[in-house]
Amino acid sequence: MADRRLRAGVVLLVLLAGYALLVPWLAGVDDRVTDFAAARQGPSWAHLFGTDSAGRDLFVRTAAGLRVSLFIAVVCALLSVLIGALVGALSAAAGGWVDRLTMRVVDGVNAVPHLLLGIVLVALFRGSLVAIIASIALTHWTQVARIVRAEVLSLRDREHVDAALLGGATRWRVVRRHLLPAALPQALVAAVLLLPHAVWHESTLSFLGLGLPPHAASLGTLLQEARSSLLLGGWWTLVFPALGLVLATLAVAAIGAALRDRAALPERAGAQL
C-alpha cells in the first residue's frame, strides 16, 4: 500500500518536474514576453493551455510558474528543517529550563496563524524573494523541532552516548556526531511533509499580491491573474495552473505520507499548514 503510494507520488512528481524544467527550455521563448494580439485565447494546438490576458502562452508559463514555486518550496523546506533540527537537537541536549523555554516558544509560534505572520513579514519587505522564503521558513520549523527533539531525547540515554560523554566529549560534539545524524532521516521526512505547505504558502502570498511581482511566473501569480480573467470567461487560466498546483501537492503529499509511515512518525506530523 505504502509502496504503491510512494511509486505513484514519485512518478507524478518526476513528470511534473520534467514538465516544469523542460518545457520553458524547449519552448525557447521568454514566458514574460507579452503579445496582446494573442490575449485570452482558449486552448488550441498553438497554445495547449490557452493564453492569459497579456497573450502569454500558459503551457510555458504554467511550467515556469511550477518551477519557481517548487524551487521556493524546496528551499523553504530545507531551511525549515535546518532551523528545526538545530533548535530541536540543542533543546533536547541542553534539557532543563532551556528545553522548557524552547518548547514554549514552539507552542507560541504554532499558536499564531502562519499565513498571518507571513503576510506581516512579506508586507514589510515587499517583493523580496528573501522575505518570502524567510516568512515560510520562520513559521514552519516547529514541527521539525518537535520531531528531532523527541528523537534526540530517545537516543540520549543510549549507551554509546554515555560512553562518548564519559570519554570526555563535549555536549555539542555529542549532539553533532551522535545525535543529529541519528535524527537526520526523520528530519528529512519532515522536510518532504513540509513541501506541500511551502508550495501553498508561496502561492497564497503571491495570490494575495504580496509575494512575487505579477510578471514573474509562479503558481500564485498565475492564479491571481486567473481571478480577473475568470470574470471574462477565461476558465483555462484557472484550470491549468490550479491543476499543476493540486497535482504537485498530491504527489509530494503521497511521497511524504509513505515516507512518514516508514519512519513511523506520528500521524499528526506535518498536518499543520
Partner: peptide, 22 residues
Amino acid sequence: LLLQAVPPFVIALGAVALFALG
C-alpha cells in the same frame, strides 16, 4: 483526500467559476 490538496483560494476561484459565472 483530494480536497486536502486544494488550497482554499483555488476552491474559492473554482466555486466562483462554476456556481457564479458558469
